[in-house]
Simulated assay, not measured.
Amino acid sequence: MPEKPNPFEELDELIERMNDQFGELSRTFEGGSVLSEISVDVADHGEEIVVTADLPGFAEADIDLHADEDSVTLSAEAETETVDDDAHYHRKERSHQSVSRRVRLPESVDAAAATAGYTNGALTVTLPKLDPDAPGGHEIDVE
């Protein structure tokens, strides 16, 4: 005689799927920021590789950028707090955003000759392609 289906197994599976989905959603909103990953474009312009990254809501000083011959690491961290010194608070809103991403490059680049600019929430990193015999990594100043 066939076994009767257990309705609680189906309910358990449904609850487990919902927990997984809500867990993913809560990680999206961690730290008061919907920005969970940096979106990037990597383009080959002949003699250079150009990486463009979206970093809305960050100031130039919030961005750290490091390059070596085969990758670029972008990170940004910002904290904002609205404070009214004369108020008796029932609630204060604070925001902390932190993102980081390492981007592998399709070819070796000269990290020491890299340049970066940040305008209207978009970071552009220009990396000249490397002579195959040149080694090393280099910090890049954002202008």
Rank of each mutant, 00 (worst) to 15 (best):
H138S: 14
A134S: 11
T73L: 05
L35W: 03
D86A: 08
V99Q: 08
R17L: 15
L127W: 08
D110N: 08
A76G: 15
E81L: 10
S39L: 05
V72M: 10
K92W: 00
D141Y: 08
A122K: 10
E60P: 00
P7M: 02
T28K: 13
Y118L: 05
G136N: 08
D62G: 04
R101V: 02
K129Q: 09
L14C: 09
T28I: 10
D68H: 02
T28G: 03
I140T: 12
L105D: 10
P106F: 02
G23V: 03
P135M: 04
E30H: 13
E10Y: 01
H45E: 09
E77H: 04
E13M: 07
A87G: 00
D12S: 09
F58Y: 14
N19G: 14
V50T: 00
H96V: 11
E139T: 15
S100V: 09
E13F: 13
V34D: 05
F58G: 01
L105W: 03
R102Q: 08
P128N: 10
A87L: 06
A112L: 12
E10G: 11
P5K: 02
R91I: 05
M1W: 09
G137S: 14
S75M: 14
V42Y: 01
T126L: 11
G31H: 10
V51G: 10
L11C: 03
E60G: 02
A111N: 10
F29Q: 07
G136I: 06
V42S: 01
G136Q: 04
P106I: 04
D41H: 09
S100D: 08
L25G: 02
L127T: 09
L14D: 06
E30G: 10
L35T: 05
E143H: 14
A76P: 02
A113H: 14
E48K: 15
I38D: 03
V125L: 05
V109S: 04
R94K: 11
H88R: 11
A87R: 12
T52G: 02
P106W: 00
A76F: 06
H96P: 10
P56M: 08
H66P: 01
M18S: 14
G136R: 09
A43Y: 04
S75H: 00
K129G: 04
H88C: 03
